[in-house]
């Protein structure tokens, strides 16, 4: 069994209006140290043991559905866990 954590964020080149609004709010709270805020998505996948390469499988899912690579970047962590 695998636990996969997928993080999706807008690409650097794409303006993030939500992140900008949150940054401004943090500034108005006097957290002026904050230089940038990027808002993204976090997903957890549980994947059963498989003979196919899990890394390849997750990459494929990200490319095809989980992220839109025109505007989003993705990264993921795969952890092998023993099913209870």
């Amino acid at each position: 069994m695998y636990k996969v954590k997928v993080y999706i964020t807008l690409r650097e080149s794409v303006l993030d209006p939500q992140g900008t609004a949150v940054k401004q709010s943090l500034h108005s709270m006097t957290y002026n140290q904050v230089q940038d805020v990027r808002i993204g998505k976090y997903m957890e996948l549980s994947i059963e043991d498989t003979t196919t390469d899990v890394d390849q499988l997750v990459k494929e899912m990200c490319e095809r559905l989980l992220a839109n690579t025109v505007i989003e970047d993705y990264r993921y962590d795969i952890e092998e866990v023993v099913a209870l």
Binding site: L10, V14, L15, P17, Q18, A21, N68, V70, I71
Partner: peptide, 17 residues
């Protein structure tokens, strides 16, 4: 159509949210 790749590009949230 954008998601399906029949047209190029993507949609972002409106500028003013």
């Amino acid at each position: 159509l954008l998601e399906a790749g029949l047209l190029p590009g993507a949609m972002r949230r409106n500028r003013d949210l």
